[in-house]
Deep mutational scan, measured.
Amino acid sequence: MPSETPQAEVGPTGCPHRSGPHSAKGSLEKGSPEDKEAKEPLWIRPDAPSRCTWQLGRPASESPHHHTAPAKSPKILPDILKKIGDTPMVRINKIGKKFGLKCELLAKCEFFNAGGSVKDRISLRMIEDAERDGTLKPGDTIIEPTSGNTGIGLALAAAVRGYRCIIVMPEKMSSEKVDVLRALGAEIVRTPTNARFDSPESHVGVAWRLKNEIPNSHILDQYRNASNPLAHYDTTADEILQQCDGKLDMLVASVGTGGTITGIARKLKEKCPGCRIIGVDPEGSILAEPEELNQTEQTTYEVEGIGYDFIPTVLDRTVVDKWFKSNDEEAFTFARMLIAQEGLLCGGSAGSTVAVAVKAAQELQEGQRCVVILPDSVRNYMTKFLSDRWMLQKGFLKEEDLTEKKPWWWHLRVQELGLSAPLTVLPTITCGHTIEILREKGFDQAPVVDEAGVILGMVTLGNMLSSLLAGKVQPSDQVGKVIYKQFKQIRLTDTLGRLSHILEMDHFALVV
């Protein structure tokens, strides 16, 4: 994948999101292997301009796509893939009243899908469409860049269908997702969380590099694949309309690839034109409109599966009536509230959605109805927002919020430890010299600072030695090549209790 991002070429006709291997024109390309080798690009942008032909009021008969309808489940399912879809609609009884809503608040519980998330729908649909058009064949390999849930859905379907599955996901995604993927037989590649989507090191860039190296491999490409919004247009939206008897006044959905909100909203605009569509985008993402909503100094966020630093091709923002931004604290607070007060075992993005819903639905009156999409299960986040310690460490809970008995030293300040200034190293000294210094002084790690004293990161003896043994660096290389740029900081005025929580999850903390 090139470091400079080429513009994806656009073909003359058809839909841009065809499933299957992508040609340089962004659509299915038939021909000899030699032709494909000559024409197939190194990668295709996940934010390529959409060429979708959908228009409100256009006859369904003019759609270029294969459409399906929700099917009634048999008493005995032939395999677990038949437990994807037909998820329950559940009334939220307490939270709406707590925040003064007059309307009825309903939750579409997508964590009841077989793999635990709304992404099971698009995973199965992308595979079925690729099999139907002859792209996927027995023994082929599926590769997908994902925040985890699409990966789980694909790995689940691949396990049943017999495909090899490789999932490329950023490091910030939970260990629970990784464990589930491994249990399903998927191979996992992790990428830096802070890598831009168009960087060769991003999950998108690495996935395309693997595709170019592995024979008979395919990126189904949830960011561009029409099967993504079509899955929701054909099934999720129809289920909502049936469950609500066609009567709903507002739908609120958090947005990642945009397939969920695009597919549902398009069908609702056709069948229930008075329904307002509300999009939820986390602070630090750029999906919301108008652009002024996205202006923030924050560039990272903890909530998973929603928000991006690019506009995915499948996201149709014209069908969203209003956007709201959400933050991590309210997302996790509301997710825990949904679990504790409503018994809905949902993930953090569901918290984002409901946090926005109780604001947006203030305009609705008694007798009206708001539906929220709860995308995934708490299963993926047992060591994250479900953990009091994690919430404390991230600053989303305060010590006084917890009532468990603490040891005698818990409320003492870090400054009472009488710490001395640490050994520091410059980023320009060599790895070999740094190892000598650390061994001589008896230290395992040291902060790396520039000549102005600005902290650049941390270097550890173990990481340097393993990097040297693996051949990633040489003793003569500058130590700046092996620094940890993500590390926890703590102030002298913070409590030892807070430091204790940090050290339970990290090997060190830097006192500043």
Results as ranks from 00 to 15, higher is better:
248 L>G: 01
116 G>R: 10
152 I>N: 07
230 L>F: 13
39 K>H: 03
98 K>G: 11
219 I>F: 06
208 W>M: 10
103 C>E: 05
142 I>T: 04
17 H>V: 13
259 G>Y: 03
71 A>L: 11
275 C>G: 06
27 S>K: 11
58 R>H: 14
192 P>H: 13
77 L>F: 13
142 I>R: 05
243 Q>Y: 12
271 K>T: 11
19 S>V: 01
10 V>L: 12
36 K>V: 06
27 S>A: 09
53 T>A: 08
37 E>S: 11
254 S>A: 04
44 I>E: 15
130 A>S: 09
200 P>F: 07
178 V>N: 01
134 G>F: 06
144 E>P: 01
78 P>L: 10
199 S>M: 01
226 A>L: 05
204 V>I: 01
209 R>K: 10
253 A>T: 13
230 L>N: 13
28 L>R: 01
166 I>A: 01
163 Y>E: 05
172 K>L: 01
235 T>Y: 13
76 I>K: 15
6 P>T: 01
220 L>I: 01
216 N>Q: 08
88 P>S: 11
145 P>W: 06
6 P>I: 01
68 T>Q: 14
193 T>I: 09
47 D>S: 08
202 S>P: 08
170 P>H: 01
235 T>A: 08
273 P>I: 06
259 G>H: 01
141 T>K: 15
104 E>N: 08
171 E>H: 14
164 R>I: 01
200 P>H: 13
196 R>A: 08
276 R>N: 14
270 E>A: 14
145 P>L: 04
258 G>F: 04
264 I>T: 10
122 I>G: 01
25 K>G: 07
146 T>G: 06
271 K>P: 05
235 T>G: 09
156 L>S: 05
143 I>S: 04
247 K>V: 04
151 G>M: 01
249 D>W: 01
86 D>L: 05
2 P>C: 14
24 A>W: 05
118 V>T: 11
162 G>S: 08
98 K>N: 09
208 W>G: 01
21 P>W: 11
185 G>S: 05
59 P>F: 01
192 P>W: 01
134 G>R: 14
50 S>L: 07
245 D>A: 03
236 T>D: 03
212 N>P: 04
141 T>F: 14
37 E>L: 13
276 R>I: 07
233 Y>C: 04
208 W>R: 07
214 I>T: 06
234 D>W: 01
39 K>N: 12
110 E>R: 01
31 G>K: 15
215 P>L: 05
76 I>R: 03
45 R>V: 07
100 G>Q: 15
253 A>N: 08
255 V>R: 03
37 E>P: 15
227 S>Y: 15
213 E>W: 01
147 S>I: 01
182 R>T: 14
27 S>D: 15
63 S>P: 10
220 L>E: 01
4 E>M: 04
247 K>R: 10
131 E>F: 04
271 K>Y: 07
216 N>W: 01
26 G>I: 01
233 Y>G: 03
117 S>G: 05
140 D>Q: 01
87 T>G: 01
199 S>D: 12
121 R>M: 04
107 A>Y: 05
80 I>D: 05
149 N>S: 01
257 T>D: 01
231 A>L: 07
215 P>Y: 08
17 H>M: 07
192 P>Y: 01
203 H>R: 03
23 S>C: 04
199 S>V: 04
60 A>G: 01
94 K>T: 15
106 L>N: 15
3 S>F: 11
261 I>G: 04
73 S>L: 10
34 E>P: 01
45 R>F: 05
42 L>H: 08
149 N>V: 01
155 A>E: 01
85 G>D: 15
269 K>I: 04
19 S>A: 11
6 P>S: 15
15 C>N: 01
109 C>K: 01
246 G>A: 01
176 E>W: 01
18 R>Y: 12
136 L>P: 14
137 K>G: 07
266 R>E: 06
216 N>G: 05
157 A>L: 04
227 S>A: 13
254 S>E: 01
19 S>K: 15
20 G>R: 10
217 S>G: 10
46 P>A: 07
187 E>Y: 05
31 G>L: 01
203 H>S: 10
163 Y>A: 01
219 I>A: 05
159 A>G: 01
273 P>E: 08
63 S>I: 12
166 I>L: 08
216 N>V: 03
19 S>P: 11
164 R>M: 01
39 K>F: 04
36 K>T: 07
230 L>V: 15
190 R>G: 04
11 G>A: 14
67 H>W: 06
140 D>L: 03
31 G>C: 15
10 V>Q: 07
249 D>N: 01
231 A>T: 15
159 A>S: 01
145 P>H: 06
65 H>P: 06
262 T>C: 08
205 G>F: 14
140 D>C: 01
230 L>G: 01
5 T>G: 08
185 G>D: 10
128 E>I: 14
22 H>P: 01
221 D>Y: 13
67 H>K: 12
199 S>T: 06
40 E>G: 13
272 C>Y: 09
244 C>R: 07
